[in-house]
Every structure is written in C-alpha cells, then in structure tokens.
C-alpha cells in the first residue's frame, strides 16, 4: 500500500514538471494560435541563462533570477519584432516551422553564451527526502518535488487571476478569440504578443529552474518539450487547468504503468506510455479534457 502511494506521489510530482512546460505552450497557443515548438528550448535557455549569470558574475540568485526575467522579456520582444510581426496572417504551419527554427537559434545562442557543459543550479532549494513523511507515514517523498508542486500551484493561481481579472488578461483572451476584432477595438497585437511571450518565458524560467535544480542544467532539458505534447493532447491545447490535470495524469499514468504493466512486456514503458495515452485520447476526445468547446451558432 505504501508503495502504491509512493508511486502515485512521485508520478504526481513528475506530472507537475510536465504541467509547467505544457503551461507555456498553452499560453502562446491561446493568444496567438501558434504552436510554439521552441517552448522546451525556452526552458533550457532560461535555466542556462540563470545558471550562467550566477556562475559568471557570482551574484546572489534573486538578482540573477530577475536579470533572467529581463533576458526572457528581451527574447519575447525580439521574437515579436523580428519574426512574428512579418508573419501576420500566415498559415499556422508556417508559424509552426518558424518556431522550430527559433528552437535551434535559441539552443545555439544558449550554447555560445554559456557553454555546453552541464551546470549545477544551486539556489538553495530544499533537497533530499521529507523526514516528516518518512517518519509518520513511512512514505518516501522528495522535498524538492513538493516544493515544485507548491510553486506550480502558486503560478497557476497567479495566471488564473491575471487572465480573468485584469485588463491585459481580458485583452489576451480577446485576442485568443478573434484577432481581427481585437485589432478593431484598439488592442495592439504587437504589445499583446510581447506580453504573452514574456509570460511564457517566465513560466519557462520557473520550469527550467525546477528541472535544473533536480537534475542539473543540460541540453537534454529541451527534450522535455516532447513530453509536454501528450500532456497538451490530454488536457486540451487551450486550457490552463487542462495543462495541469493533463500533466498529472501523464505523470501518474506512466509511473503506474511502468511498475504494474511494465514487467509483463519487458519494461521501459515509461518512455512511450504517454504517447499511447495521447493517441487513445485523440481517437475519443480530440479537443482534450478541457479544450475549449467550439461555440457554433446554428
């Protein structure tokens, strides 16, 4: 029994990480209809910059963190100024191709700026097992993972308030609904895109930091973007709660499958289970669990 709970918990924690990456995808997809393939690389780039600044300048982490936010805002601005602005009203597939290119550019720039060695991101996040859980319930839980879950919860709460209650949030949702109409009421798409890419950059920084603190900042970090795909298919491309729930389901699902189904098929299910689940979902519910219902007047 304890083993089962432990498995589920560790699945949930891994799921939180997937959710954070997926969240960045959802933000950009909602506001601009662009599937941002570079989101995973943005996580890597943010974490690299964060670790790089700390390593090269020896500044304390809060200052380096704020500086990294500045860098991500600059990246957002540059993407809008040099890429998106020239591709208004192009086919989604063209924009998708652009983000693939962007992924390579960001990866290369990160490499040139900060080097390709694995970096340790030590910002004093709690690590090791939680003694409390171990003593009282005999369950092994990583402190860092609990911390990550808390951060994710705070982030989602913050985003929900931002989207529902603020003027900018309302404008973001308006743009997501209808570009043309948003333009016609005087919402500047350029500003909105910079904002949304900045927010996605911030989410990427948080996700990258947590992954980096767990397993070091390395280039394989950009590959977690691939795990975010099934999360999005499960949760729906346009739903923030969907990204969270989808991430948790994938996280728990793959851990459980690995342990309880794995032995019968020779193991290593964890690597492809998420994609199988996504495939099954596409057949049954293509808009995802929480995907926006398409409002159609008849």
């Amino acid at each position: 029994m304890e083993f089962l709970i432990e498995t589920i918990l560790s699945g949930l924690m891994a799921g939180v990480m997937y959710s954070l990456v997926a969240l960045g995808f959802v933000l950009i997809f909602k506001a601009s209809g662009i599937f941002n393939f570079a989101q995973g690389v943005m996580c890597l780039f943010a974490a690299l910059t964060f670790a790089g600044i700390m390593e090269k300048t020896g500044l304390p982490w809060p200052i380096a963190f704020v500086m990294t936010i500045g860098v991500m805002v600059f990246v957002a601005w540059a993407v809008e100024r040099f890429v998106l602005r020239h591709l208004v009203n192009q086919e989604p597939i063209i924009l998708f191709m652009v983000t693939i290119g962007l992924a390579y550019v960001l990866e290369g720039v990160g490499d040139i700026l900060w080097g390709s060695d694995v970096k340790v991101l030590d910002i004093g996040l709690p690590s090791g097992a939680s003694d409390y859980m171990l003593d009282n319930f005999n369950i092994y839980v990583e402190k860092l993972e609990v911390f990550a879950a808390l951060i994710a919860a705070v982030l989602v709460g913050f985003l929900a308030i931002f989207f529902q209650k603020t003027r900018i949030g309302r404008a973001l949702r308006a743009v997501a609904d209808d570009h043309q109409a948003a333009l016609s009421v005087g919402i500047s798409l350029q500003t909105i895109w910079v904002i949304v890419w900045s927010v996605a950059g911030f989410v990427a920084l948080v996700a990258g930091t947590l992954w980096g603190a767990k397993s070091g900042v390395q280039f394989s970090l950009s590959l977690i973007a691939l795990k975010a795909l099934p999360v999005l298919i499960l949760g729906g491309f346009t739903s923030i709660p969907g990204a969270i729930v989808g991430g948790l389901i994938i996280g728990v699902g793959e851990k459980l499958a690995e342990i309880y189904v794995g032995p019968f098929v020779g193991g290593a299910i964890e690597n492809w289970f998420a994609y199988m689940l996504a495939l099954a979902f596409l057949l049954v519910r293509p808009q995802g669990l929480f995907g926006e219902r398409i409002i159609e007047r008849v």
């Binding site: 003027r167 309302r170 404008a171 949702r173 308006a174 043309q180 109409a181 016609s184």
Partner: peptide, 29 residues
C-alpha cells in the same frame, strides 16, 4: 481608436468566449 475612430466589423465579431460585460470592457481597452 484612441483618437475616436472605431470600426464595428461585419458579422459582429464578438469575443465568443468572453461574457457580454467583458466584451464591452474590451472596448475600453
């Protein structure tokens, strides 16, 4: 729009997923 010239597009183009009140508020953006 800031200078006072605004268009109401053909086919309404309301923001479907926003409430009526939120729609109106976007006009004051």
């Amino acid at each position: 729009v800031k200078r006072g010239c605004i268009q109401v597009m053909e086919g309404r183009h309301c923001f479907g997923h926003l409430t009526i009140e939120e729609n109106l508020l976007t006009g004051a953006y």
